[in-house]
């Protein structure tokens, strides 16, 4: 059980690193939305399920309830994170921020 949770935790961290580096390196605001929305959600899913597996290792009813609560957080994040990213993109679009296009330099 502990091996599974360690593997899940490590993979969650890999997704988190991808997300954080992605936020820094991407050229434009809209491009940065991708890693922020997707990779953080996935990283969170992996890390929290790793912890849920660890909590489940001693199989009691209370541990089962806690693991279910952890999974509730994961489901909650799955619903809210895309909506939050959509709200940011919508705000950017409405405020007139045009997506960065590679051909933009020639247009000027």
């Amino acid at each position: 059980m502990t091996v599974i949770s360690t593997i899940l935790l490590i993979s969650g961290l890999i997704f988190f690193t991808g997300g954080s580096v992605g936020i820094l390196r991407f050229p434009d605001f809209y491009a940065r939305l991708h890693p922020a929305g997707k990779l953080d959600t996935m990283g969170l899913f992996m890390t929290l399920s790793g912890m849920a597996v660890y909590v489940l290792s001693d199989f009691t009813v209370s541990a089962l309830l806690t693991a279910l609560k952890i999974m509730l957080i994961v489901v909650f994040i799955f619903i809210t994170s895309p909506t939050a990213t959509h709200a940011i993109a919508d705000a950017g679009m409405r405020a007139g921020l045009w997506p960065w296009a590679r051909t933009r330099e020639e247009e000027k």
Partner: peptide
């Protein structure tokens, strides 16, 4: 890393992304 984006983000909305990223990490 997102803290850097939150502080130096060119646009205001970049800062929101930084804060969102930090928030999701804090939950974990």
């Amino acid at each position: 890393l997102p803290l850097y984006r939150a502080v130096f983000g060119p646009t205001v909305l970049d800062r929101i992304i930084g804060v969102n990223a930090i928030g999701s990490k804090t939950t974990a």
